[in-house]
């Protein structure tokens, strides 16, 4: 079974804009208190995910992907705070919910899989119990029914001898198997929205492929919307209907997956694509975008990518660059140069 970009849900054929939104992030800003004072780490980020849609969020380490997903779960805590904008889930403004009300939403309507499978499970409880407690909490099942559901979930995520393994502790599982457990836990209450924050980064390549396949199949089965985070465009290509590219706390490009991979607009996106290792190429030349992303307290006032960009001109550093619509519907790019015809193919 190979992952593919083929539509996997009933709604996948329709454009995102016509689907009822599940998760709307509007103008979200997040800041952290550091030795440099309050530093804005996410800057006016907007992102809408429609029913059953799969959106890939991609960007280098430190671009703000995890912080964005934590904000979507209302899990930003000290020394961080949401300093602007808000998140709406199924029409409900999450910032207007109390902590207790938010507890009813998390795990039930929106669930999350974390980057670190090795540490995200509690070492002192069996995996069965850790899944069962979610359904006891949200679906009010009895202990027995919940334990049964936990076994079913373990089975669903492809853990062999699920009934027996439910009684095992996390340290008795490999990284890949733990991530399966995390997925089972996240899906136990059939949430409408699933956030997967680099669910395969910590795993070896074979296991990565297995987990991606699993997520792919489960999305078809459960029909939930998916925000899939990765710094690897190749992984995103396998799973996303639409892609959002982040750089230094901002969205720099968004487009349908087909559009983005065929005609990447933003120089940063193109750089990311060039640095993807390609199997079909005999030459072992690796491309890397020169330089490193700026620290949040050092974000340039103009285009944040300009210092690393070969196309940058003096106009790029004058002031903040807005997201500019490009070509296809819903596609936009935060670059003054991308609307111009000087764009070449994806590989420059």
């Amino acid at each position: 079974m190979q992952p593919s970009t083929a539509p996997s849900t009933a709604l996948a054929g329709t454009p995102a804009s016509t689907r009822p939104p599940v998760l709307q992030i509007e103008d979200l800003s997040v800041e952290f208190l550091t030795e440099h004072g309050w530093v804005t780490v996410i800057d006016s980020l907007s992102l809408t995910i429609g029913e059953g849609e799969s959106v890939g969020l991609v960007g280098e380490s430190g671009s703000g992907k995890s912080v964005t997903s934590l904000a979507a779960m209302a899990l930003i805590k000290h020394p961080g705070r949401v300093s602007g904008g808000h998140v709406t889930l199924d029409g409900v403004r999450l910032d207007r919910l109390s902590w207790r009300e938010m507890e009813d939403v998390r795990g039930k309507k929106i669930a999350m899989i974390f980057q670190e499978p090795m540490t995200s499970l509690n070492p002192s409880f069996t995996v069965g119990e850790q899944i069962a407690e979610v359904v006891r909490r949200h679906d009010g099942l009895s202990r027995k029914q919940a334990a049964e559901r936990a076994v079913n979930m373990l089975d669903t995520v492809g853990i062999p001898r699920a009934r027996e393994r439910a009684r095992a502790y996390p340290h008795e599982f490999s990284g890949g198997m733990r991530q399966r457990v995390m997925i089972g836990m996240a899906l136990a209450c059939s949430p409408r929205m699933l956030i997967a924050d680099e669910p395969t980064t910590a795993l070896d390549v074979t296991t990565q492929i297995q987990i991606l396949d699993l997520l792919h199949d489960l999305r078809a089965e459960f029909g939930m919307a998916l925000l899939f985070i990765s710094h690897d465009l190749g992984v995103i290509a396998d799973i996303a209907d639409r892609v959002a590219v982040m750089y230094a706390g901002q969205l720099v490009e968004t487009a349908s997956a087909d559009e983005l991979f065929a005609r990447p607009s933003h120089p940063y996106t193109r750089g990311l694509m060039r640095s993807m290792p390609r199997a079909d190429e005999a030459t072992e030349t690796f491309f890397a975008i020169p330089g490193a992303p700026p620290a949040p307290w050092d974000f340039p006032s103009g285009c944040r990518f300009a210092p690393r960009c070969s196309m940058a001109g003096s106009d790029c550093t004058q002031g903040p660059i807005p997201l500019i619509p490009v070509g296809a519907a819903d596609a936009a790019s935060r670059c003054l140069r991308t609307t111009a015809a000087d764009l070449e193919g994806p590989h420059l």
Partner: peptide, 26 residues
């Protein structure tokens, strides 16, 4: 501060369960 406590919160468990069940046992 551990990741598993964040997981427990992300599951929607009540705060007292995160504290007295998950963190306390460790």
């Amino acid at each position: 501060e551990q990741d598993y406590a964040r997981t427990a919160t992300a599951k929607g468990l009540r705060r007292r369960a995160v504290i007295f069940k998950h963190a306390a046992k460790n």
